[in-house]
Amino acid sequence: MKYESLPGFVEERVSFGETTVTIEPDRIRDACLQARDELGFSMLCDIVATDYLGWGGKGVSGYIATASGRDLNFPSTQGLQTLPELKPKRFSLSYHLLAMRQPPERVRLKCWLDDGEQVPSVVSVWPTADWHEREQFDLMGIAFSGHPNLTRILMEDDWEGHPLRKDYPIGGEPVRFSDAQ
């Protein structure tokens, strides 16, 4: 569709009424520039990084169907028994864009990264990306190249580790009679 012209385009997918466009990580800045200027996505809502370490490892089975597969009074209905779809790399970085027109349009530009892979910063496209990228660097350890001030923002400046990664423990103290921890 119309997103094919974005530089670095890999694939486009629609699920739950939302469009997700996968872009190569090193072309993401050009793609964002084109999205802002030509496609009219003038506002960057959010930049989110997700860590998929351990995804699908447990093999989810049992009831995980959508509304059409659920039956009210039969608890043994298994619905569809599926495993979650495997992801190409460990981290995904999602840019949520908004076009303020009638009807409004939202798109998610996504790129897949390995641990330590750098991605160009989009601060020059939308200045609001400044703190969003700092937050993802702080909590997830994604390195943005070309960011004017890539320092920790939510944790203390000398904190070690990136808390939101899956291999970082939840911390806290053990509490009696509670699970996990």
Binding site: S15, E18, T20, V48, W55, P84, R106, R108
Partner: peptide, 28 residues
């Protein structure tokens, strides 16, 4: 209960502006 696998971004108008929730579920 288990929620099907997928990712969504839902935005509402909170008193401060656009409050969005990005949710990724594994099916668990």
């Amino acid at each position: 209960y288990r929620v099907p696998e997928g990712e969504v971004y839902v935005a509402t108008e909170s008193p401060r502006g656009e409050q969005g929730c990005y949710l990724v579920s594994e099916g668990g």
